[in-house]
Computed example of a mutant assay.
Amino acid sequence: MVFFLMILAGTAAATVLGVLRVPTMGDWRGRMRWGLAGALAFAGVDHLMTPDRYTRMIEPFLPFPEAIVLVTGLLEIAGALGLLIPRTRRLAAVLLAVYFVAVLPANVSNIVNGIRFEGLPTGDWYYWLRLVFQVPIIAWTLYVGGIWPRREASRVSRA
């Protein structure tokens, strides 16, 4: 849920910059893209800087939890960059949506195993709500990548 709030904050900042006529902010989809990219970059760097926070989420049967956390952090940073490059935007959005589905087991593990994070609420309600927020994050990702819904201008007329 904090990640979703980071996306919203980044989008708000991009909107302010758009009002100030910063040209790269573009339309709403572009501002939302910057918000998601900023949240991903922040989360990716956090994975690299504080890996111990995330290794607790890795199921015990998976080998090399530190390497998994490192790779996921790098994937988040790469996904953020990929969203900002027009040529790679669609691919990045699809791969990030797959990534967000792939990390669902870690979020479920938090709930089942009672894993709690410093600075976040300790109640189960927060972790269930966090799990629910994966759905709008995936939808947001597909939207800013131009995957869903398809823009009218990109549809081919068969008249």
Score class of each variant (00 low, 15 high):
residue 4 F to R: 09
residue 4 F to H: 09
residue 7 I to A: 13
residue 7 I to T: 11
residue 9 A to N: 03
residue 11 T to F: 11
residue 11 T to Q: 05
residue 13 A to E: 05
residue 13 A to M: 15
residue 25 M to L: 15
residue 26 G to E: 11
residue 30 G to V: 05
residue 32 M to L: 15
residue 43 A to W: 01
residue 43 A to P: 07
residue 43 A to I: 10
residue 46 D to L: 13
residue 48 L to I: 01
residue 48 L to R: 00
residue 49 M to Y: 09
residue 49 M to D: 12
residue 51 P to Q: 04
residue 53 R to Q: 13
residue 54 Y to T: 06
residue 58 I to D: 04
residue 60 P to W: 00
residue 60 P to K: 07
residue 63 P to V: 00
residue 64 F to H: 12
residue 66 E to M: 13
residue 70 L to I: 08
residue 71 V to N: 04
residue 72 T to P: 02
residue 73 G to P: 02
residue 74 L to Q: 07
residue 76 E to H: 08
residue 76 E to P: 03
residue 76 E to A: 10
residue 83 L to M: 06
residue 85 I to N: 11
residue 85 I to H: 11
residue 87 R to N: 10
residue 91 L to V: 13
residue 91 L to P: 07
residue 92 A to L: 06
residue 100 F to T: 02
residue 100 F to L: 15
residue 102 A to Y: 00
residue 105 P to C: 05
residue 106 A to K: 03
residue 115 I to A: 00
residue 118 E to N: 12
residue 122 T to N: 14
residue 126 Y to M: 04
residue 127 Y to L: 02
residue 128 W to K: 13
residue 135 V to G: 10
residue 139 A to I: 07
residue 140 W to G: 06
residue 143 Y to Q: 01
residue 144 V to C: 02
residue 146 G to W: 01
residue 150 R to C: 08
residue 154 S to A: 15
residue 155 R to W: 08
residue 155 R to E: 12
